[in-house]
């Protein structure tokens, strides 16, 4: 318990050195890792999406690959390809950049749906199926995707099914004036690539195991169900949260509780994660129909729901 907390603090501090003034965003990113989830970091260009993803990846002594998505990218560019080896008289699988611990999928909505969907199986089941063979991905495996909501030129919005596979969607937002000046000065702010790893792979696996053991009392489960049911019943949301969404919320809340130094859940854990864990899974009526368009609206609807649903006492 104490060790888990210490590990998380160490990781947070390390990532926080690169992403100045955004402890809550760093916390969410760490939770994504501890909860065995994938993160979707969505914001305007230049607020540090890539920095956050890279800092998190670098802070762990694990494999790290960065994939810059472009419109001409093919699935094989990510997953890998089987190549004829004349010496062995056989096709030999040459793994793509996905075969690592942390994948930074930069500007994921710039590539075609075909390439995006090739990520699906990998994200969900931590394995890759290609040419009648299944290749397991290393553990831990985490996809940190970034996307730009305002930039429509040459982008392909992520389908809901794929959005549902991200545990959390994080928005970074502009830094405060003071923090931005610190960044401008450049003193004491290392680049993400210059960070030293502070956690070993075993530590990450240990944290993930600890998070799963966080105790959830019956009223907490009821509270999660009440929140989810409220999104399904809301007249503003034609598509509510899926059971996978409910599971994601609980998993993220467990990691949050661990990061808070507890081995049991309290309603605050669930409530705090309602927006990052649920807002990208719902459709808002009246928007263009694409969740990424109405993102802002979805967040306010979820916020209202979290404000209204009675908390267990």
């Amino acid at each position: 318990m104490g060790r888990a907390l210490e590990l998380i603090r160490r990781l947070e501090t390390n990532v926080g050195r690169a992403l100045v003034g955004k402890p809550e965003v760093v916390r969410l990113a760490v939770i994504g890792l501890v909860a065995r989830g994938h993160l979707l970091i969505e914001d305007v260009p230049g607020v540090g999406k890539t920095t956050l993803a890279a800092a998190l990846a670098r802070s762990i002594g694990a494999g790290f690959q960065r994939i810059q998505f472009t419109s001409d990218m093919l699935p094989s560019d990510i997953l890998g390809v089987s190549i004829w080896q004349p010496e062995q008289s056989a096709f030999v699988f040459k793994p793509g950049p996905l075969f690592t611990n942390i994948v930074l999928a930069d500007e994921i909505n710039r590539t075609t749906p075909k390439t995006q969907s090739s990520l699906l199986e990998a994200m969900n089941e931590a394995q890759v199926s290609l040419d009648h063979s299944t290749y397991p991905l290393p553990r831990p495996f985490m996809v940190l995707a970034t996307q730009n909501p305002l930039e429509y030129e040459g982008t392909h919005p992520l389908p809901e099914s794929q959005l549902d596979r991200f545990l959390l969607r994080i928005r970074i937002g502009y830094p405060s004036v003071g923090d931005e000046k610190t960044i401008l000065r450049g003193t004491g702010v290392p680049s993400a690539d210059a960070l030293d790893p502070v956690l070993a792979v075993e530590d990450v696996l240990h944290l993930q195991g600890e998070a799963e053991r966080v105790h959830a009392e019956e009223p907490i489960l009821d509270y999660v169900m009440a929140l989810v049911a409220a999104t399904r019943a809301s007249p503003l949301l034609p598509l509510g949260v899926s059971p996978r969404g409910a599971l994601a919320l609980l998993r993220a809340a467990r990691a949050w509780a661990l990061a808070d130094g507890r081995d049991f859940l309290v309603p605050d854990d669930v409530k705090a994660l309602a927006i990052p864990a649920l807002a990208h899974r719902v459709l808002v009526r009246g928007a263009t129909g694409r969740p990424s368009d109405g993102g802002g609206d979805a967040e306010s609807v979820i916020r209202a729901i979290a404000h209204e649903v009675p908390v267990p006492r």
Partner: peptide, 10 residues
Amino acid sequence: RPHDGETARE
């Protein structure tokens, strides 16, 4: 008094 949707910490 705590509201319905207000957690103990809030």
